[in-house]
Design a protein around this nucleic acid. Structure first.
Length: 428
RNA sequence: GGAGGGGUUCCCGAGUGGCCAAAGGGAUCAGACUGUAAAUCUGACGCGCAAGCUUCGGUGGUUCGAAUCCACCCCCCUCCA
């Protein structure tokens, strides 16, 4: 490995990807001194990762590219408990079956970003349930619990609002979460000689807990690094769209919707996101930013970002499908699409609905397609000129969809608002 | 187990017998302006075309009338044991 490749901390800093360092210069020297083993944990809180999980996950990949060995840990055990860090309320426990199922779904998602066949620094996929479920409770309390001071734990910022805030509390279950994650780090330091843990900055308390535990249990010096939480300049929550969370899974968020999400990133955020979510060199990103600023026209950054991230997550075919739909729908020439084009859009992931029987009213079509939640909302959208069918604005509640005004005798491209499209098909 | 404080529409949070489908803020959605940005302004924001209907932890009462009063139950928080 070239020496330049090894200076991963500086590389991450140039991308503004370092929030906190546990170990500072010592950690830099440690990473510069050879190929190290680095881990990051992902708890199964749903049946897919979402875009927010991508920052630490891609950071893990960056470590691997720099010659280090990544461990992607899926929290089969910790997912049963629930991390209280910066959560405002106690959460509902999920059943063991559900968590086990989610673990299985997360595994391939974690794996797709890492290289498992590149020699000494091949990635490892681990599950903390493997070393947690057999541990005897009394042993755990004696060997692990004894190293933690409750006085110190309740001082952690991550649980502060649960303890200080009137009306909220924290169960012993969630409070013990830190012990489990700390135990993971100590265990990985033994099993894999893992010496670095990374995570989002909300994981700082859990990471430092692990560093202390590894030292106390095994006399091992280990380190930590956190990445910033992804924020949005306007203060709203990152990773949500009008249709909900943006997931990695193509079943939950189509490549088209995924692509659109990135295409719609605000100017104020897009260059930061290029640094966080792509592997383009920082110098290249600076160039893009400079050229966008100079042009005064619509920035190119969003298109580049959407292209890079969509390809990374959904591959070339996914990206191409997303771009096909985007071009077709936003070009304004909807009425020139052929039946083949329209069927392809449905295959590419444009949401679609079969409309049985003959003609139906626009109001009903909006509700059945999910573009409006209720008849009332549908009428309101129509009243606001927010609805169009096959490119033509609909301005009457009495508008009917029928073979006569369909594209190719059976297709309708329904649009609500500026960006939400749906394909309707009449079936006889 | 004891004492006290709470549970209101997506979230926060007012409301303590009719003027309450329920203030205010946030989030969200639509329109205008734009670049499928941001900011700003306007409008919507339980369901229903409407008459009206269903909501304020649950169940049952009191009352002409309840989110508001009473009883019991469930859940949460604080302090004490």
């Amino acid at each position: 490995m070239a020496a330049s490749e090894m200076d991963i901390v500086s590389e991450l800093e140039s991308r503004q990807l370092v929030s906190q360092l546990a170990g500072g210069d010592e950690l830099r020297a440690h990473l510069a001194g050879g190929s190290r083993t680095v881990y990051c944990g992902f708890d199964p809180t749903a049946d897919s990762l979402h875009v927010g999980s991508m920052v630490p996950l891609l950071t893990l990949k960056r470590f691997q590219q720099a010659g280090h060995k990544p461990i992607a840990l899926v929290g089969g055990a910790t997912g049963l408990i629930g991390d209280p860090s910066f959560k405002s309320a106690e959460r509902q426990l999920n059943s063991t079956d559900i968590v086990a199922d989610w673990v299985e779904r997360l595994k391939p998602q974690l794996s797709q970003f890492l290289d498992f066949d590149c020699g000494v620094n091949s990635a490892v996929l681990a599950n903390n349930l493997d070393w947690t479920q057999g541990v005897d409770m009394l042993d755990f309390l004696r060997d692990v619990g004894k190293h933690f001071s409750v006085n110190a734990m309740i001082q952690k910022e991550s649980v502060r609002q649960r303890i200080d805030r009137e009306g909220e509390g924290i169960s012993f279950t969630e409070f013990s979460y830190m012990l489990l994650q700390s135990f993971d780090f100590a265990e990985l330091s033994q099993r894999y000689d893992c010496s670095v843990q990374i995570g989002g900055s909300d994981q700082w308390g859990n990471i430092t807990g692990g560093i202390d535990l590894a030292r106390r249990m095994y006399g091992k010096q280990v380190y930590g690094l956190t990445t910033p939480l992804v924020t949005k300049a306007d203060g709203s929550k990152f990773g949500k769209t009008e249709t909900g969370t943006v997931w990695i899974s193509p079943q939950l968020t189509s490549p088209y919707a995924f692509y659109q999400f990135w295409l719609n990133v605000a100017d104020a955020d897009v260059y930061t996101y290029l640094r966080f979510f792509t592997f383009l060199p920082p110098t290249r990103i600076d160039e893009i930013e400079a050229s966008d600023k100079a042009s005064g026209a619509r920035p190119e950054a969003q298109g580049i970002l959407a292209g890079e991230v969509t390809e990374l997550v959904h591959g070339k075919p996914g990206l191409e499908a997303a771009q096909r739909i985007s071009r077709a729908l936003f070009s304004g020439a909807i009425d020139s699409l052929t039946a083949t084009d329209l069927e392809q859009l449905a295959l590419d992931g444009l949401p679609s609905t079969e409309f049985e029987g003959g003609g139906l009213s626009i109001v009903e079509a909006l509700v059945r397609s999910g573009l409006a939640k209720s008849n009332k909302m549908a009428r309101e959208f129509i009243g606001n000129n927010a609805v169009s069918v096959n490119g033509e604005v609909v301005n009457s509640n009495d508008f009917e969809l029928s073979g006569a005004n369909a594209l190719e005798g059976k297709y309708f491209v329904l649009k609500r608002g500026k960006k939400l499209f749906h394909l309707g098909r009449l079936s006889q």
